[in-house]
Design a protein around this nucleic acid. Structure first.
Length: 213
DNA sequence: AAAACGGGGGC
DNA sequence: GCCCCAGTTTT
């Protein structure tokens, strides 16, 4: 797929977004959405299905939805609630570590810069991107496993890893063209262009896709 | 560069 | 039963 068709595909996706992304809005969160709860929720979501994460979010934030309250819980209390998400021992410890860091280093406020977020143990590049985007509305440029898969299926890149895809994306596209792309393609990858059994019959871009994967 | 951390959902 | 999950830290 060349750059012209890539731009067309993105445009088609944007125009049809409300239709195909409706299922992604099916979740009622049932807890206060603050930068802090968003950050903790991101930690819980690592390598875990959305439905499972959400159930754990609700239970955990019913117990504590601020760092002040969270550090009063024991690791075992947290583990008990988040058990189904997997990696529960490590994640419980990470949640406590992060809460302490936010309290002590940042006066209880989640920092707004990527560098400061990355300085927190337990927050890596992907988590920092999600937090910046979801909590502070910053449009980030990143290539996660969804975006990587889609770019390859479309035939816009031919790469092995998300890191390679990101490199090529930055070479091929201007910063303006990259803006908002990540969020759009992640939604697309979750709803239609899934890893297994993509729903090509409902895909707005199927005519342009080269189905490379 | 590879291992370790893991239970739950879809098929 | 097998594959997958917006990942990060440690070895």
């Amino acid at each position: 797929m060349n750059k012209i068709n890539f731009a067309k595909a993105v445009k088609l996706l944007e125009e049809a977004y409300e239709d195909w992304d409706a299922p992604a809005k099916r979740f009622e969160r049932g807890y206060r959405r603050t930068p802090y709860t968003i950050m903790i929720s991101v930690v819980l979501s690592f390598r875990t299905k959305d439905e499972v994460t959400l159930a754990a979010d609700k239970k955990l934030f019913a117990l504590a939805d601020t760092p002040e309250k969270m550090v009063k819980l024991s690791r075992q209390e947290i583990e008990k609630v988040i058990y189904p998400v997997g990696f529960y021992r490590k994640k419980a410890q990470t949640i406590l570590d992060i809460s302490h860091t936010v309290l002590e280093r940042f006066k209880g406020e989640v920092p707004r810069s990527e560098a400061e977020l990355l300085g927190i143990k337990g927050i890596g590049p992907k988590a920092a991107n999600i937090i910046l985007e979801s909590a502070f509305g910053v449009e980030t440029v990143a290539v996660d496993i969804h975006v990587h898969r889609i770019l390859n299926r479309w035939g816009f890149v031919s790469t092995k890893t998300p890191e390679e895809s990101l490199k090529i994306l930055k070479e091929k596209l201007t910063p303006a063209e990259q803006k908002g792309l990540n969020k759009l393609l992640v939604s697309f990858g979750q709803v239609l262009c899934r890893p297994v059994k993509p729903i090509c019959s409902e895909c707005p871009v199927v005519q342009l896709c080269e189905r490379k994967l």
